[in-house]
């Protein structure tokens, strides 16, 4: 099955890179092209992806210190004076600690501030549950006028960063500090708000965002050998959701599975369910994510396995949703998850 414009992840050794590196390259390219951007960080430049930018463009960089709320407010003031700002901090500090400032100052004022959640999802790894950012996509998605983008890899992260600079209102970009597979290439199309079909298939559609797009592709490849035809869609923009794509693939394949490296409540899965229910096209559906629980310490790859966010877990959900599609009962996947 052709996977147009993508990296060959099935035959050659896959390359790994933190998506925050793509953020860094995007910022540098923007500055090199003469964009009037200002990058702010709250004492994370060492790991968030702004470190190289700081060295190259010190006059465009500001480390405000360990005060995320003030950073967001200061960014708002600079945006009021016409600047395009990228603020960077841990996903859970942006979406959690600074949420009110993002809501009441940035969003209420429709200000041109791009909020970059570093170390998001399970990336914080060994640091454990309190530092892992599983709820960020859900809580940022509820904000009026907020665009929410979860890049699949470092290549896409760069494209998303550059695209965000052209959007006048607020954008939340979610990045991973863990080294994750590079799935896309320079040639892979990327348009904010537009989901992309990465693999054709007729039996079921998997809509994924972020670093688990790779796992969805692996699952689809594996199931091909079992005679199951899986369509894979990279749904990088969780808001505004590509509703046309979501309802089209739901109708055409009759079942969907969503996959995200975060809470299974209110994220990509929730967005797709809301969309399908309201166009009168609900189809059998499984939401693969982390079910109402905190993360815990471990290596990123171990954690993906632990929470069933690997090709194996996704394949299980696909078989499950296909049983539902044929009129069977749901539940086997949950039982397996519980027994793990």
């Amino acid at each position: 099955m052709a996977e147009m414009g993508l990296a060959d992840i099935h035959h050659t050794a896959v390359k790994l890179e933190a998506t925050s590196r793509g953020y860094e390259r995007g910022l540098i390219e923007l500055a090199e092209r003469g964009s009037d951007i200002i990058v702010m960080d709250a004492d994370l430049a060492g790991s968030s992806g702004t470190g190289e930018f700081r060295k190259r463009f010190p006059d465009r960089f500001m480390d405000i210190g360990l005060c995320e709320q003030d950073m967001i407010g200061t960014a708002a003031g600079m945006a009021l004076a016409g600047k395009c700002i990228f603020v960077t901090t841990h996903g859970m500090l942006a979406a959690g600690k600074a949420w009110d400032i993002i809501r009441s100052t940035i969003c209420y004022g429709t200000l041109n501030v791009n909020i970059c959640g570093a170390d998001a999802g399970l990336s914080a790894g060994a640091a454990g549950g309190s530092r892992q950012s599983l709820e960020d996509v859900a809580v940022m998605r509820t904000l009026t006028g907020m665009t929410v983008v979860v890049p699949a890899d470092s290549m896409e992260a760069k494209k998303a960063t550059m695209a965000a600079s052209r959007i006048p209102g607020p954008v939340y970009l979610r990045f991973a500090s863990a080294r994750v597979p590079i799935v896309t290439t320079d040639l892979t199309p990327f348009t904010m708000g537009q989901a992309e079909v990465y693999r054709q298939g007729d039996d079921v559609s998997v809509l994924a965002c972020g670093v688990v797009v790779y796992e969805a592709m692996k699952a689809a490849r594996k199931l091909e050998d079992e005679g199951i035809s899986v369509r894979v869609i990279n749904c990088h923009t969780v808001k505004p959701l590509d509703r046309a794509m979501v309802s089209r693939v739901a109708v055409e394949t009759g079942a969907i599975v969503t996959v995200e490296e975060g809470a299974s409540i209110g994220g990509l899965g929730g967005a797709c369910a809301e969309a399908l229910a309201q166009v009168g096209r609900p189809v059998p559906m499984k939401i693969v994510g982390i079910e109402d629980r905190f993360g815990e310490s471990g290596e990123h790859e171990e954690l993906l396995q632990h929470f069933g966010l690997t090709s194996r877990g996704i394949a299980t959900a696909i078989r499950e949703v296909l049983t539902m599609k044929k009129g069977g009962a749901a539940g086997a996947h949950e039982e397996e998850a519980r027994s793990r």
Binding site: G73, A76, A79, I101, G109
Partner: peptide, 25 residues
């Protein structure tokens, strides 16, 4: 109105951002 406000405690950060931009420009 130069800045939308409402949630308490946020104005001085906004003022700082405006002032930093003024200095830059």
């Amino acid at each position: 109105i130069d800045a939308s406000v409402g949630s308490p405690g946020q104005g001085l950060s906004i003022a700082n951002g405006l002032a930093l931009a003024a200095k830059r420009d």
